[in-house]
Design a protein around this nucleic acid. Sequence first.
DNA 1: AGTCGATCGTTTGGGGCCGTACGTTTTCCG
DNA 2: CGGAAAACGTACGGCCCCAAACGATCGACT
Lengths: 195, 195
Amino acid sequence: MGVGKRSITETEKAVQERLGDIPLRREQMAAVSNIYRAATAVRQHLENSVLREAELTWTAFTVLWEVWIWGESETRHVAEDAGISKGTLTGVARTLESRGLLTRTQHASDGRLVLLALTPAGEELMARVFPAFNAEEAFVTEDLSPAECLKLADGLRKIVARLEAKGEERREELLAGEAPKPRRSGRRPRNGAAG
Amino acid sequence: MGVGKRSITETEKAVQERLGDIPLRREQMAAVSNIYRAATAVRQHLENSVLREAELTWTAFTVLWEVWIWGESETRHVAEDAGISKGTLTGVARTLESRGLLTRTQHASDGRLVLLALTPAGEELMARVFPAFNAEEAFVTEDLSPAECLKLADGLRKIVARLEAKGEERREELLAGEAPKPRRSGRRPRNGAAG
DNA sequence: AGTCGATCGTTTGGGGCCGTACGTTTTCCG
DNA sequence: CGGAAAACGTACGGCCCCAAACGATCGACT
């Protein structure tokens, strides 16, 4: 040992002491906190190995991957599937374009749309990088059997599906009546109330 | 349907077409990609419900939680357990301090160390927010039985443990001989090489 | 043809986040 | 006692990320 990490069991015990009589959903807590731990660990591993060597960030890789798999795509779909906001995509796509990995073209009939597509260089890069990426996916899950991987994927899919189906409803329920408490971010109104 | 999302099954099929003859580790890919999807979905749900109402970001909450559970702590331990860099913690802690939720004090005998502790206001906030947080952890996992949650947590823990044990070794192996490809980030040298 | 609301991608502002550089303090080893 | 090495928290550069504002475009309805 030696590292400053506390085990999940220790943590749960300390939490129970803090909460005292309030019943704690331990299994659910363990599942959720481990999702985040695993996601962080996997992402860092990949960013510091395969993606580092290719000089790609996680997000940039995700965007390239979407366009690689699905071919020429509208930006809104890429942002949705990549799980980032459209504003983020604008910047990432611009960077990738400047590196000659993808192109941005106007849609033929709808002037509002922008289409993303890989350049030959982008295709080559993905053909080289993705097998290595998948090999690391296999590496990080090596202590799990393929069947266990599927079971894991299944459980996670249920969580995602539940949030997609009922997350918004739930959030509205929770905020019912309360002030929406705007986030500190976001662009400011041009002005207006001067004076 | 209706939304622009493609299912995992569709994605896997398209990937197989792209990769053709290259053998693909499908189960592992499904597991890893779902980890990230689930982590993003859960985080967004919590940020937009419980944490929004408390005006906390995910990271800020994580930091408060660590200090809440373990009491007065050295910053390096908090950063480690929260899964963020020490540089990030400096900023987050400063923000929380300015909001009167935690204090930063010098260690008595080791002048290099800084200790974090919750203020009474911080204690109150966590006593109020954490039960709600845990309730949402239960909500997102409601389609899984407690036993399934534990199984899920187990599988994820194996991944984290594997990366902790063998991740660094693996990364060195992969980069063997190659140029380390420095990241574009990081502070610049004060100067030096002028002329 | 003209208006108006919806939808698109982009811009903008605030903050999170990492990794490197840096100055300070402590510890190690003569 | 003194200098080197190690460890700490902070400053900073660059990118990611979101949400709201914004201008361009589209579509429906008149």
